[in-house]
Structure formats: C-alpha cells, structure tokens
Design a protein around this nucleic acid. Sequence first.
DNA 1: CCAGCAAGATTGCAGCAGCATTGCGGAAGG
DNA 2: CCTTCCGCAATGCTGCTGCAATCTTGCTGG
Lengths: 223, 223
Amino acid sequence: MRILLIEDERELADALSVALGKHGVVTDHTMHLADAIELTRQNVYDAILLDRRLPDGEGLTFIPELRRTGTDTPIIVLTARNEPMERVEGLDVGADDYLGKPFLVEELMARLRAVLRRPASLAELHITVGRMVIDPLHLSVTVDAIPLDLPRRELLVLAALAKRKDKTVLRSTLEAAVYNYEEEIQSNALDAHISRLRKRLLDAGAGVAVHNIRGVGYLLKEE
Amino acid sequence: MRILLIEDERELADALSVALGKHGVVTDHTMHLADAIELTRQNVYDAILLDRRLPDGEGLTFIPELRRTGTDTPIIVLTARNEPMERVEGLDVGADDYLGKPFLVEELMARLRAVLRRPASLAELHITVGRMVIDPLHLSVTVDAIPLDLPRRELLVLAALAKRKDKTVLRSTLEAAVYNYEEEIQSNALDAHISRLRKRLLDAGAGVAVHNIRGVGYLLKEE
DNA sequence: CCAGCAAGATTGCAGCAGCATTGCGGAAGG
DNA sequence: CCTTCCGCAATGCTGCTGCAATCTTGCTGG
C-alpha cells in the first residue's frame, strides 16, 4: 500500500512514516499543498493523509482541488482541530474519514483498511475479442481467463490492434505503437512480430484472426 | 435515503429517527439482531447504523454475519464503547465507520454521506491463490492455514501481485508498491526480492508461481 | 487468363537486453 | 552481540528481437 502524507510537523511525519512502514505502508511525504497535487499526478496512491494546518494554507482546500482532477483516492484528515462541527466540515468537502490528533497508529491503520475495502479500480478498460480479453492499460491478455504471456513487442502490436478491433490499423500506426521515434526499423521487423503473434494466438486458441489489408495495414477480428 | 437502525434504547432510536427524517432519511428500526438479518433480506438499505450493546448480543457479530450473505451495505457502528482499541475492533470486523456516543446528528449525517460517497465495497478481504491465502490489508499470508511469515519487502511484492492475480503487474507498479519516492533503487533489488520470494513460496509449498513477462513485469498464478 | 511483380509470411540465426541467482557486507532490530 | 533483512554487484543464462533469405499470396495490365 502506498500513501501520500501531507503534514508539516516533520517529527510527526517521520514517526508516522516509520510506524506505517511497519504495517507495510509505503509513505511519500510532503509539507506543502503545492507539491501534493504534483505528486498525485506522478503517482497512484491508495490513500492520502491530510493535515489541516499547513504552511501554505488550510489543508481542506486541497480536497476539492484534487477531486476536480478526477482523482477519487480516499482522503483521511488528520488534525488537532477535532470539534464535531470541524469534523462535519472536513467530511463534507469530500474527506472519507476524519481522525483527531493525537491518535493511535493502530486506529489509523484500521481506518485506512476500512477506507480501502472498496473496488480496486475505477474504470478498467477491457477489450474482448473472441475468447480473448485484453487490458491495454496493464498490458495483460487472457484467453478463457487463462493468462497468456506475450513478448513485449507482440503485446504492443496486439494492444494497438485491439484498441481498434474490426477496423484497419495503418502500418505506420502500428510501427508507432511499437517503436519510439528514436528506434529505427530497417527491415520487416513488424511483419515478423505479426507472424509470431499469429502463431501464439493460434496455439492459445484465442479465437481471433489478424488480417492483412494489402498496402494499408492490419485488422484484428474474431475468427 | 433509507437506513436500518439497530439500537435498543427506544428513546434514542426515536429521537434519531426524527432527526434523520429532517435530513430526508427514512429509518427502519429494530431492537434485535435476529430481526436485522431478515430486514436486510427484504429491503435494500443505503446504510446500517449499529449499536454494540444489544439485548440479544454484541452488535459487532452482526457484521460478518451480514457480509456472509454477500451484502456490502456500509455499516456505521454507534456506541458508548469508544476506546481506541474498541474502535479498531469494530472497523476490523468490517464496519465502515465508528462513532462514539454521544454524538451530534450533524456528525452522523456527515459520516453517512462520507460512507455513501464511496463506491459500493466489494473488494476482497482475502485472496486465494493455490494453497495460499493472502490478506492484503493486514498483510498476512497463510499456506494451508499455516501462517507464513515473509520479510516486509517480499510481502509487499506478493501482496501487489496477489491483488492482480493472473494479470500482469508492471515492473514499475511493483517498484511503487515497495519503495517510496525517497528510496532510490540503483540495482536489481526488486529482482532479488522476487527471487527470494520464489524460493520461500516453493519451500512452503504454496502452489503458486511467479511468472516473468519479459520487458513488462510479473504475474502471479497457480502452479 | 496469365505472367510479372510487389507486398506479405515465415523462419533460422546471431546478438544482446533483461532476468535469475547468489555471496557479501552494512544496517536494523532484538 | 547475534540474527535477519536488504541493497548491491558479479555471474550465467534465456529467449526476445532485428535481420535477411526464401517462399507465398494476391493484385495488375495486357
């Protein structure tokens, strides 16, 4: 589990990092709201722990700001401001839980677990073709729920085809999907990938076919 | 919004019904755990408010009972038993929140809202692969019900793999699961963890295998 | 309808990137 | 002070991948 801790008391933050670490939680720490948004852009956190009093402002303002970016990471507010109405305030701007300082690490962990007991992901994009399911985000492929592992380049080709299944994908598009602009291709490497991919899909009984459109590109469809 | 209130003090229950009613909440009330299960079968509630001290037993026992029926309705425990470790207890048997008496109705409402904002929770508490059961929230692992203790980092790797069993987990995802951004990796530390984890899983006869997908990541599946 | 040709398919091969394994020493915890 | 964990790095190995040679397919014009 990986969390973001937004807290300006260095001592507390360090102690928490250590304590949470013992529970197997990986903690990123920042003292400034300004950095927090950037960090959530760069990393995917399981949860965020947020202090209210921060050097650059009231922590609660961070919540709507974060939600506006479409992130629904659970947020637990940790603060000495623990009057009932202050708790209401915090929960109503979008915090998932509110915990007054001081607190036991045990309780924080329990609240973390409670908040995390929810579906892992938001919108997982799966593409189904034939008996095959492709998750282009996680780069995983299954046939009849059995994982199929493909070499990286073949995987990239397949994902690119799957994203536009039943439609022609230009040869150049495929090349772009597999090679970055630094890598140059001096041969029929792409054709070779297609060939090997076809063989593997056939062996796995994926129920799909990769068709060629002469002079244009390729196309993935059910068999 | 419709909720189920399980509470034996009639006065409090009535007062709450009225107060919640003013917030647009329809309340079903029962004083007995025995009735509660039946009521959840007949109605779909948005949330359940649960007292601990009840005439026919400890309220917390209701939670696993209800969960076993496949219901994932959020549960908020309302109780005078409000010591930190008692709260931990409540949350860990599956309550979504825990609120000590006495409380302001305002706060209860806020917590209700917070709990209802969360996508319905279906996340598995335990993941079974081969002969191994993993609890990613508590980070515990058993093989044939015998606890297996793993070093922290190996545990984190395993939990990350288990959460997406039978699916590829990107190398970078694994790194993020084990290291925070301050910790830098200058070597094949992750590979080493995988290697040692494999050995331990083999020794324990876990019946699982960690596969590598070259250039992509790793994947956990049954042997 | 056929010859000619261009585009694609297939496959062996060699090189090498990525992975597996393991010993070592420092660090942390008891 | 002893044990375990963990990062590091050296070593060996596997199999992906680009290349090129060869074979096949299907389009085209006459």
